[in-house]
């Protein structure tokens, strides 16, 4: 039961990282660069929820919906004003620019909201105990929200015509262009999706922790690790890798302790890349 509870803890950890990894992977699949501002998009998402809750008097549902809209707009703006201009330079330059965007977003947040902590309002309840196996009610909601989000993203990617174009563009840009796919519409869908994923992810992280300007940035590296393990640009792979990493990380704590668990994902990342340089679910130079 001890290990079952650890696995449960890891599942929650994995779901928290999954949204971040999904967002990183989505961005990479089409825009072809690693977005270091992903964590800060989530921070923005969490702050918008706090702000809306403060105005409306605590409605979490409204908060999440509003946050999705605002964060998607910011994400689109980031594409339109910044990343659009970086399409033809080295992906390292885009990475550097996204670091700039991350710093910028955080500074705007702290300029208006300060550095003190905020909290997202939700009903806190004791865990339900099944013969020693503990399930915390909010974790169920977190899991539900994550699954709904994943379903939405994959429905858009696999069930809609525009999703087909997104995947085509991800697979082979030149071929897709030749077939008449216009990248602008695809990019709008992609960056909106990234914004929505960030808003929901930010809300989940804000609920589980506290809302401070650094929350997203602090989770960025493990999120990167999961995205790469899943094979960069493979959204489903990223999600699976994040959950696996989370569970393995927490299960490893009796052996490695709680200080080293934070680098577990990095160690696994390096080990896996030695063995499979393209990641667990990636194919060399052919990412989906």
């Amino acid at each position: 039961m001890f290990y079952a509870n650890l696995a449960m803890s890891g599942l929650v950890q994995g779901l928290l990282l999954a949204t971040l990894a999904l967002s990183v992977s989505l961005c990479f699949s089409v825009a072809k660069f690693t977005n270091a501002a992903t964590g800060d998009f989530m921070t923005v998402g969490a702050y918008v929820v706090v702000a809306i809750q403060a105005v409306t008097g605590g409605s979490l549902m409204l908060g999440v919906l509003g946050s999705c809209i605002v964060t998607a707009l910011i994400s689109l703006l980031a594409y339109w004003l910044l990343f659009r201009h970086l399409a033809h330079v080295s992906p390292i330059m885009s990475l550097v620019a996204s670091v700039g965007l991350a710093l910028f977003l955080r500074s705007v947040l702290s300029l208006f909201a300060g550095h003190e902590q905020y909290a997202i309002d939700y009903p806190i309840a004791r865990a339900i105990n099944f013969h020693g196996f503990l399930i915390v009610p909010i974790d169920l909601w977190v899991a539900l929200a994550s699954v709904a989000l994943l379903a939405l993203v994959f429905a858009v990617l696999y069930l809609t015509p525009i999703g087909l174009q997104v995947r085509a563009l991800a697979d082979n840009r030149d071929l897709a262009r030749a077939a008449g796919i216009r990248s602008r519409g695809v990019m709008i869908v992609l960056w909106s999706l990234i914004g929505i994923v960030s808003a929901v992810g930010g809300t989940i992280i804000g609920i589980k922790t506290v809302v401070i300007p650094d929350i997203g940035w602090n989770l960025l590296l493990p999120g990167f690790a999961a995205a790469i393990l899943g094979g960069l640009g493979n959204p489903l792979g990223a999600v699976i890798a994040a959950i696996l990493l989370g569970i393995c990380q927490e299960l490893s704590t009796p052996m490695v302790g709680f200080v080293y668990k934070t680098i577990f994902s990095f160690a696994v990342l390096i080990a896996v890349l030695i063995w499979k340089p393209e990641g667990l679910f990636g194919r060399v130079e052919q990412v989906r």
């Binding site: 001890f2 509870n5 922790t209 602090n218 927490e250 302790g257 709680f258």
Partner: peptide, 20 residues
């Protein structure tokens, strides 16, 4: 003594160890 790292989203394993 349970040592925990700052900036973690989830301390459940640490707390489980403490409660054990």
């Amino acid at each position: 003594d349970i040592r925990y790292q700052p900036n973690q989203p989830n301390y459940r394993s640490e707390l489980q160890q403490a409660l054990l």
